[in-house]
């Protein structure tokens, strides 16, 4: 057997061993890591998530827990409070466990317009 064939065989076995994931994460961990490493990658992170959500929503599926809210926070940090609120509301409606936090965030967005300092 050639070396290439052996590598292919082992690779297939390795792939077969990995259990399928429950959610499609669209590289959330790597993107978040990249965002911490280089905050200017936030725009790419945001665009990637939006495209991912569109795809899932077209299939009638919801994103993994927390992702709507993470996108909301990226908008909030970019100063777009209205779009942030849209995604916080989506998170709340998708995951009942997030309701308390999302409602709190939505209320604080309504109450204190604009003057919250950006970091």
């Amino acid at each position: 057997m050639t070396r290439a064939a052996l590598i292919l065989l082992v690779a297939t076995l390795l792939v077969a061993c990995v259990p399928p994931r429950k959610y499609d994460w669209n590289n959330y961990d790597a993107s978040l890591y990249q965002y911490y490493k280089d905050p200017t990658s936030g725009e790419k992170f945001r665009v990637g998530m939006e495209a991912h959500f569109k795809q899932l929503e077209a299939k009638g599926q919801k994103p993994a827990p927390g992702l709507y809210a993470e996108l909301g926070t990226l908008y909030l940090e970019g100063g777009d409070r209205a779009t942030a609120a849209t995604y916080y509301a989506k998170e709340r409606d998708a995951w009942p466990e997030s309701r308390y936090l999302m409602d709190t965030m939505l209320q604080s967005l309504e109450k204190s317009p604009k003057e919250r300092p950006r970091k």
Partner: peptide
Amino acid sequence: NYVLSTLTIPLAELGYYVFPVNTVKVV
């Protein structure tokens, strides 16, 4: 921050609701 980015997926894959870690950090 690097470790923080790795914790969500395994816990959510186990079936828990995991609060969005970056949102939590910002709050």
